[in-house]
Simulated assay, not measured.
Amino acid sequence: MGYTVGQVSALAGVTVRTLHHYDTAGLLRPRQRSSAGYRRYDDADLARLQQILFYRELGFSLDDIADLLADQQADVLEHLRARQRKLAEEIARLQRLAEAAQRAAEIQATGISLTPLERFEVFGEIAFDLSYATDAQLRWQDSQGYQEAMARAAAHTKEDWAQLMAESTAWREELLSAFDDGEPADGKRTMDIAEGHRLHLSRWFMPCPPRMHQRIADDFVTDPRAFALVVPPSQQRPGLAGYLGEAVRANACRRTTAGTPTTPSTAYEGE
């Protein structure tokens, strides 16, 4: 008796309309008909349909599939390899599009009002990880300090960002030099570098008391995405994030002893 169109549709997960189209196109004509003239598919038809669906899943056109199935001498392996190459190219293209979309989303998430070209000119290797920006927003979105930092960041001009990044570059060079020279994390030179970072944040983003600075440095140690905001991966050294964290803690202790208040004026600490 064979299988009806409805039964094949249910078995293969395709619509009845698709099966009718395959029949009209000569791609899959059932071998049998009922006494009333209805299509009946046998096991060989189902096997052919399986091949068709396999090639369709790989993106082959119906004409290409018809040629492959009609030519018993066709080099199926070569066709599959050619299709694989095209799929790899398409995947690479989509990956580039995804990265471009992510960069655009990052710009929106950080509130930085620069064109992509200006952003590249200013930031160079420093990249804002969208997932980190999203996490930060979820953690601190209700805090006055976070809102102030984002508002000030959004208000910075290209010139502001260029000056800010020049300061960051000079600071990073000092940090790397101290680390490479073997300076102790709690030594005066390294603590002064940590203090420079704290003042930099206060100058450009929001008031950053020592206690808040410690919490920020803790993120540098525990989250590579955060540390990449101050030291790009190409310049990082093993142990550098921990070294900076120790320097920030030592500096906070030093400033507390010297009488500098350590309680932040806002809740921008994740508490």
Rank of each mutant, 00 (worst) to 15 (best):
I126L: 15
D160Q: 00
A104M: 12
M191G: 02
A154T: 04
S131P: 02
G111M: 12
D181L: 09
S168T: 11
A170E: 10
Q137M: 09
L175Q: 10
R119H: 12
L138H: 10
F179S: 11
L130E: 04
W140L: 05
R139Y: 05
Q147V: 00
A149Q: 04
I112W: 06
S131W: 11
A109K: 05
E106Y: 06
D135E: 11
E174G: 06
A185P: 04
L176T: 05
E99G: 15
L164I: 07
P116S: 04
L176P: 04
R139S: 07
A185R: 02
L176V: 03
F120I: 12
R152N: 01
L114E: 10
A185E: 08
Y146I: 00
A133G: 10
L117G: 09
A166Y: 02
A166D: 09
V122A: 08
A109L: 13
T110M: 15
A133H: 08
W171F: 08
E121W: 11
G182S: 04
W140A: 03
R139Q: 07
A127S: 11
Q108W: 07
A101K: 13
A136G: 11
Y132T: 14
D186W: 06
T157G: 03
E174I: 03
A170V: 11
R172Y: 02
R189E: 10
Q108R: 13
P184Q: 03
A151R: 01
G111V: 05
T157D: 03
L176S: 02
E125A: 15
A104R: 14
D142N: 08
A105G: 15
A109D: 07
W171C: 04
H156G: 09
Q144R: 00
L175G: 06
T134L: 11
A136C: 13
S113W: 13
E173I: 06
R152E: 02
L114Q: 06
F120H: 12
I126W: 14
G187C: 07
I112K: 07
L130D: 10
Q102D: 14
E167R: 09
Q144W: 00
A100P: 14
I107E: 09
P184M: 05
E125P: 05
A166L: 06
G145Q: 00
E99A: 14
D135P: 06
S113V: 10
S113K: 15
S177V: 11
D180Y: 08
M191L: 02
A151Y: 01
L164K: 02
W171S: 01
W161E: 05
E167V: 06
Q108I: 13
I112Y: 13
W171K: 08
P184L: 01
A127F: 09
A149C: 01
T115F: 04
A100R: 13
T169C: 08
F128K: 09
L97H: 15
E167T: 05
A154M: 08
A127C: 11
M191Y: 02
L97K: 15
E173K: 06
S113P: 03
A162K: 10
G145V: 00
W171H: 07
D180K: 05
A104Q: 12
R172D: 04
Q147M: 00
I126R: 15
G187N: 00
A154E: 05
K188I: 15
T190S: 07
K158M: 09
